[in-house]
Amino acid sequence: MLVNVESVSKSYKRGTQKIPVLQNINLAVPEGEFLALMGPSGSGKTTLLNLIAGIDKPDTGTVKVSGTDVTNLSESKLAGWRARHIGFIFQFYNLMPVLTAFENVELPLLLTSLSKKERRKHVEAALDVVGLTDRMQHYPNQLSGGQEQRVAIARAIVTDPTLVVADEPTGDLDKVSADEVLTLLDRLNKEFKKTIIMVTHDPRAAEKAHVARHFDKGVLE
């Protein structure tokens, strides 16, 4: 199993009140899986995804990703771990508006020891996968939403991560762009053997995935 979530619970404090978000979650994701997490708004999908991706820590339980217990790492270790193992795709793309498509994709590589030339090679390869080599020098505001999300996908895969996490990657896109993005994710999974965990509301998105798991009130069904 690539990802092992074991009896994880997480609650947020709002004032003095403790709001349980995840209750005793168990989830195992084998390598090469394309998993869709579904569920109503506020059910804790993003929270779980953040725990798996090492952005947040659970109150109890463990999260293991390819053998590493993520819950035990320090903040700085975790940052390095994320950079090496996780590719992130967000609903609102979250590209740096002042950087070109090329520079946005290059961003994660700045934390590696790659030379400028090697970085260029990787960036061009990633942009090639998402079909945007002709838009390299464009700024985010010169791209359509679908194109922006594809740049974001290129940024997520440029470091060749162990796991790709996507939080509602089609949530802000029209149907055509959404289909493009889903096809791309499917290709990443099939052709490049990437393990993908995707949170989505969209039934069509869930169809592309191999497995869909449903969330309700902090419990996985």
């Binding site: 994320r82 090496r84 992130f88 979250n94 740096m96 961003l107």
Partner: peptide
């Protein structure tokens, strides 16, 4: 803030 959050997510320190 969101940009800083993304940078941190990507592993920036």
């Amino acid at each position: 803030i969101a940009e800083y959050a993304v940078l941190k997510t990507l592993g920036f320190r």
